[in-house]
Amino acid sequence: MRDQLRVLKHSAIASWAEFTAFYTWKTWTFTWLSRLLIQVCFYALIGRMIGSVDYLLVGNAVAIMAIDACVVILLAIGERRSGTLSLMVAAPSTHLTIYLGRGLIHLVSGVVASVTAFLVLPPLFGVHLPWPQALLVPVLITAVGLSCYCYGACVASFVLGFPAARWLALNISYLTLMTFCGVNVPTDFWPDWVRRVVSFLPMTHGLTAMRALIANGPASTVVTQVVLELLVGAAWFALAAVGFNRMVRRGRRDGSIEFGA
């Protein structure tokens, strides 16, 4: 366990170093963060047009988190490109731990973006967040982020074998969450079977918790839904572990893990 944590720590440190070599806080703010905030504003404006600005604003402010969390899907190609995938497989550590560590920075980036959206945008659209419950918003966002991240890692484990499909996989993964998990319309808008599927996706329960929190709903609802969200995340984590083992087994069998790039 301590070994695993150390691997997680060092791959997170490495990804932080790579991230900061690529972005400065200025470029991150003006290219990435602003792109996410504008997306939230776009949907919030639609909300204003139909008279439910708070519903769409809250939903989309949480949803942008999913984009960052799902970026973990793209990391696979990076390992292949830098020729480190074979070395990673040949190292005596759990591959999923390494991979999760390397994407952790995007999870952090997503949490920061989402929290920023909650800080900056509600006043602009005249939406009121209850005080002091609003202090729990970052906690809920982190819970949603974690489960989205595990979901992304699971998709990543399947995409590792098909690097050409990575962008497609990324977009479909987060758009599925954005469309069906209660971001823009409540989940009971959808047919029963969709709703059943959606309850196994990340974000659904986390968003329910968030809306309950903001609407001054019962604390029990908030807690139950957060726990459910984390359970969903754990399930996706288990699936990701299976997926990674399967990917490595397949790569070893068919020889698709190359020395070099």
């Binding site: 008279g51 769409l56 497609l168 977009n171 758009l175 971001v183």
Partner: peptide, 28 residues
């Protein structure tokens, strides 16, 4: 050769479903 470039074609239906669901839900 690079299906990634066709990404937009796959994301459009999602956006359309989102927008439609929003206006239908709002009965507009």
């Amino acid at each position: 050769r690079q299906p990634d470039d066709l990404l937009t074609l796959c994301t459009i239906p999602f956006t359309a479903v989102i927008m439609l669901s929003v206006v239908i839900h709002a009965i507009r």
